[in-house]
């Protein structure tokens, strides 16, 4: 999905929720006319190769980082198609592993496919786009947007929430 489609998709989700004003343009930039919300251009993401499909086994998370080395993440093959899953089986997902509360590193719990925070016990569902099941953060877990090419190479190309510890997902961007 291109970034443009992604924005359209986010916009659609907002529309379905019936809170058209509150979403995409909510944060960010200088607003020219204070009475109107404006969509903010999202940052430019690099396309980084993370691994090849052949490197992955079900429920064996692979450490990755994206969009740069200082942003650790995890790449997981779940063995069943999930929302936002990539690859031929729609079952490959990637997430930031810095808790979007206070930045502790999350642990993968294969038994119920969750990422868990030893900081203050937040839990995120890796089968459901990183939805916070219980916890302290006001966002679900940043999910890395993936593309898998014909050779099975997996690329990350975007992030759907602000990564912990940054004011901009692409540092210096």
């Amino acid at each position: 999905m291109s970034k443009c489609d992604r924005l359209v998709d986010l916009g659609r989700r907002q529309f379905l929720r019936g809170s058209a004003a509150a979403g995409v343009g909510a944060a960010a930039t200088v607003v020219a006319t204070p009475k109107r919300a404006e969509a903010r251009a999202r940052v430019e993401y690099p396309s980084n190769r993370l691994a090849n499909v052949a490197d992955l086994a079900v429920d064996e998370p692979l450490d990755i980082s994206y969009p740069d080395d200082d942003s650790p993440g995890v790449l997981i093959k779940l063995g069943k198609a999930v929302p936002g899953g990539a690859g031929p089986d729609g079952d490959i997902v990637a997430y930031s592993v810095m808790c979007p509360h206070k930045g502790y590193f999350l642990n993968y719990h294969a038994a119920d496919r969750t990422l868990n925070c030893p900081g203050h016990y937040s839990r995120f569902d890796v089968e459901l786009e990183g939805q916070q099941i219980f916890g302290m953060s006001n966002q679900s877990l940043p999910m890395f947007e993936l593309r898998v090419d014909a050779s099975g190479d997996i690329f990350a190309e975007g992030v759907d929430e602000l990564i912990y510890g940054r004011t901009n997902n692409v540092l210096g961007g």
Binding site: R6, L10, A27, A28, T29, R42, G130, L162, T167, N169
Partner: peptide, 13 residues
């Protein structure tokens, strides 16, 4: 569907 804000940068004080 999990709610995502789609906000990936914030203004700086």
């Amino acid at each position: 569907m999990t709610y995502k804000r789609g906000v990936d940068q914030l203004p700086i004080p």
